[in-house]
Design a protein around this nucleic acid. Sequence first.
DNA 1: CGAGTGGTTGAGGGTAATCAAGGGGTGTGG
DNA 2: CCACACCCCTTGATTACCCTCAACCACTCG
Lengths: 248, 248
Amino acid sequence: MPANALGHRARLNETRCQTCSLSSLCLPLALEVEDMDRFDAIIRRRAPLKKGEALVRQQAPFSSVFAVRSGSLKQLISAGSGDEQLSNFYLPSELVGLDGIDEGSYQGTVVALETTTVCEIPFDRLDGLSENLPELRAQLYRSLSKELRDDRRMLRLLSRMTADERLASFLVNLSSRFRRRGYSAYSFRLSMSRADIGNYLGLAVETVSRILGRFQQQQLVAVSGREVNILDLKKLSELANDGCPYDG
Amino acid sequence: MPANALGHRARLNETRCQTCSLSSLCLPLALEVEDMDRFDAIIRRRAPLKKGEALVRQQAPFSSVFAVRSGSLKQLISAGSGDEQLSNFYLPSELVGLDGIDEGSYQGTVVALETTTVCEIPFDRLDGLSENLPELRAQLYRSLSKELRDDRRMLRLLSRMTADERLASFLVNLSSRFRRRGYSAYSFRLSMSRADIGNYLGLAVETVSRILGRFQQQQLVAVSGREVNILDLKKLSELANDGCPYDG
DNA sequence: CGAGTGGTTGAGGGTAATCAAGGGGTGTGG
DNA sequence: CCACACCCCTTGATTACCCTCAACCACTCG
């Protein structure tokens, strides 16, 4: 068998939802085997993104949503006066681009934080398919609705929480998202810079740094560069005072 | 013709989308006449809500979304420690309850700010109908997506804007929403209290009051209690520094 | 080796919160 | 009809949190 044929086979295999380790979290989660094949068929593979590469650019015409396969991304929304608001981090199984449906253009530039692979899902195909697959439709609604819910959580964080609470909430939230994806909830690597964290949480970089230092002194976490070890998740959750400490 | 029959006819008529003045903004906006009738058929009329009455309560099981016909509402999300975050105001034609789809329960308590009428739309019926009506489906996606977009705007507001900018942005946003609904963009009545505004914008009541006073001194607005007259929408928009000054 | 990036730490100042008090409107009951 | 209470709003004084500015360190890369 020629090498390129094997390569082709392997590549196809990689994109198959049935063999994807994320299938229990991703869009097709509720589909039967044959329906999953139909879903599979509309997905487009993309070359992996390098760190810093943009997946979509703000105001580019909306055509697809993207499911993260591996790696992570950030969404930046820039408004007139130059400043860029970091509005979201995306981890594996999460959907990028849903906020572009309304206006028909992407609402922010989405940039890879590390080497990242995504599945491209053309939205018109997805919409057509969902016509006959109530489960897929429901899952799409849930994804949209969940993002709304997360944003509302952020609204509360930004309008009512102190800097300490924001950082605690951020770490606890990351922790539970990693846990859900089968990674350790206690030990992980931040793919984003301190500046990104500050931007996201509405804090200055210096404040992020200082508070992480304080958390370390208080034996809540051990931080070394971007490596994080959570030492006292319970106290951190209390600090975050988030309502639902163990949910992402 | 007996009086109650007339009453019944009139009541039915009121709820018909075809005669509703909001039809160009609301969910069925893209539907053909016969499809609109089918949509009409699933809508449930509700008795008007009095000021302060709750439309839905946080954590109650999700079953319907609600389109605002007249009046206005606020959504309150309460987290463990007693504080309540005001996450949204809803004006006529806007949809309440979309963020409940994901978890199957309403994410906040939604309370009428004044006498308010809504159309109840059972979500399972809506979902079923949308199966065969791509335009309805698209509009539903747009509604969800638009709410995401609005929330992202709020994230930026809360994390990067000064108190002055927040108030300006709030007023400009209200103004354009009123305009879109056929009301004056320059003269309107706030249905929410200063406390509500402060809660929503992440500011103390005192700050809201002070800044409104300052805006008045600067001839940007004329405020008398809850009556607002916008005197210089252009300057206010610049102050808000929102990117898109004339969009709701 | 120098430049650049990302992170940490320290000093000082500004913005908005908090604390405190008083005014104006409305509704209710005497 | 008036008095009182209550809520909403305003205004003033003080305080605190976090931002800004600035310097420095560790590491990477040309």
